[in-house]
Write a protein that binds this DNA or RNA. Structure first.
Lengths: 344, 344
DNA sequence: TCCTCCGCATGAAACGTTTCATCGAATTTG
DNA sequence: CAAATTCGATGAAACGTTTCATGCGGAGGA
């Protein structure tokens, strides 16, 4: 149906190579000839066939990102960051969703390799040591890990310092006079969750605060947060934590809802800090304090590392970039707790 | 770097065509030969080159979806629905983000056409009459419109009845005794917004309720909702609407926050109904009533129509599927307003 | 025994580009 | 004026598949 270069050439009365030159090096062909070719292209509605192009070139000009969950605001922001960089470089970003399913992830990676994509940004379902990823690298398709394990040294990675994130939240709460603090999050097999908890624990012990109550949740979801709130609210006031730090904002929104529903006030009775600073955090009924990750920045940097490796090839030095999180204080934790009121 | 079929053939001591047969019609090659080929494939780490495959086949096996905003929960759910169907059919779905930018949309469509994708699901930035889309169809790449204008008759479309959605919300509020009602949403150039408002207006006039206050917003965002809340809360209680219907949930979350922040109670002082029923609606501090759209269903159906057209080709009849929305009542509007309390 | 048919393997052709060595004509240089 | 250089256009080769007509040897039927 669609015209090929050959037909354009015939239509314009030139050779096949000339049409190709008009497309790729317009300057080497004389203006009148060029114009005749362009007219023919317009008239026939010619569209380049990218398969043929890629076949010749040996690789495509698209970059892929494989995310754990397309409907998680964290990842969509990472995607937007990567997109900006990739588009600026004249390439195209396609998004693949593994849905936290290793089999789907595997299928996507296979397909991407068959397509000879220029490179792959990936947050692997399990860890960064996946042999599948090594194979991509062996076949000289660069891989950059996003926010999951630095893995081997044969690839770049970008991540955020989750231990520091936990520390920031803990410093803030301790500084506001809190001594009975809870950590809500899970499962701990997720490295991020474990790191955030570790940061909190370390900071508290440095301040001589021994009492960290840990509520492990099965998921990082709103409803898991509601369940955790129930457990906490059921405690007698004298033993109930005065502050709760959640491993992500979805949990924190659930805790917020559950705690308010049981007649407790936020932040007066319970201070609350989340993680990720998704847009909905600021929009909660009590605006949520949260540890912000540079989500778009994460995507941008990952894409830059990838393009650098793809273009440079031989001399590229793999790098592991770690970003610093940042605490955003809002109403949910912004209530100074004086010693006299402690334990009320 | 990566081995080709030719090398596999040499390595296994067979002809090139035989390797291809092992890959595509394993049954026509004798078991011992087949095994030798498979061994060679494994040993060389052979990976099919999809470009060459597509070049030969004339089209690719991937389907694309171009969405307005990857970070909008509505679209991510549509994507998940489409994904399920496409994967089941053994194809691959790639997601492209236009970010509501016509130029980006255009670039994506160009690239997708060059790639000879199997078909395109698209929510166009402007309307469904885009000439760019006609060109795709002319070049026999099927297009299905998702939730935006049915456009011409040369393509399928899926949508949700937004007028009905407005009616459902209005019926609910009137049935609960509300007589002073506000509609918050905008810009009205978006067909969905206009339709939802029209549904409300029609229902109210059928019930003899004349008083529909319309607050037009510049965007469908949380902060626009907060601004609208300010405007409403400033009214004297005797003239303030007792119920607010918002054109989407982000607006409604903003209104909720603004209204509570000004000391009004939801639903006692102001009942609130949103639209889309995103996950965060149920998780709000006051769980939000909302008009639910079958988001995943929308994606599934669109993908089915697309694949049907792509496979069937000649005899395909274009269809325009319209879904019914459904009201989900939660706490934010679930307060029976008796005549005696009206106008309190 | 001869013919036919069947199962398997073969290798050339084609898909639509890009690249590159080549060539002719026009222009410049000595 | 001959030789050298430049400019523009040419067409064949190559990229890695899939497909298809062809070939070949052995088994079954007449």
């Amino acid at each position: 149906m669609t015209a090929s270069i050959k037909e354009v050439a015939r239509h314009a009365g030139v050779s096949l190579g000339t049409v190709s030159n008009v497309l790729n090096r317009p300057d080497v062909v004389s203006p009148p000839t060029r114009q005749r070719v362009l007219d023919a292209i317009a008239e026939l509605g010619f569209v380049r066939n990218d398969s043929a192009r890629q076949l010749r070139a040996g690789h495509s000009r698209t970059v892929a990102i494989v995310v754990l969950d397309v409907s998680n605001p964290f990842f969509t922001d990472v995607v937007r960051g990567a997109e900006a960089v990739v588009e600026e470089a004249g390439a195209m970003l396609v998004v693949c969703n593994s849905g936290e399913d290793p089999a789907r992830e595997h299928r996507h990676l296979d397909a991407l390799e068959e397509q000879r994509v220029r490179g792959v940004l990936v947050t692997p379902v399990h860890d960064g040591r996946h042999p599948r990823l090594d194979r991509l690298v062996e076949h000289s398709i660069p891989v950059v890990l996003v926010d999951r394990g630095t893995g081997r040294a044969n690839r770049c990675s970008v991540a955020v310092d989750d231990v520091l994130g936990g520390r920031l939240a803990a410093e803030h709460l301790v500084g506001h006079g809190h001594r009975r603090i809870a950590f809500v999050g899970g499962p701990f097999s997720i490295r991020q969750v474990a790191d955030r908890r570790a940061g909190v624990a370390a900071t508290l012990s440095e301040h001589g605060v021994a009492d960290l109550r840990v509520v492990e949740t099965p998921h990082l979801t709103v409803s898991a947060g509601r369940d955790a709130a129930e457990e906490l609210a059921a405690l007698p006031a004298s033993r109930r934590p005065t502050a709760v730090f959640c491993a992500n904002d979805l949990l924190a929104l659930g805790v917020l809802q559950g705690v308010i529903g049981r007649g407790l006030r936020v932040p007066e009775d319970v201070a609350l800090v989340g993680y990720d600073d998704i847009d909905f955090a600021a929009a909660a009924a009590v605006p949520l304090s949260s540890v912000r990750q540079p989500r778009e920045q994460l995507g941008r940097t990952a894409a830059q590392l990838l393009l650098e490796e793809a273009n440079d090839g031989g001399t590229h030095q793999h790098r592991h970039v770690v970003f610093q999180p940042e605490l955003v204080v809002r109403q949910s934790s912004d209530h100074r707790r004086t010693p006299s009121r402690r334990g009320r």
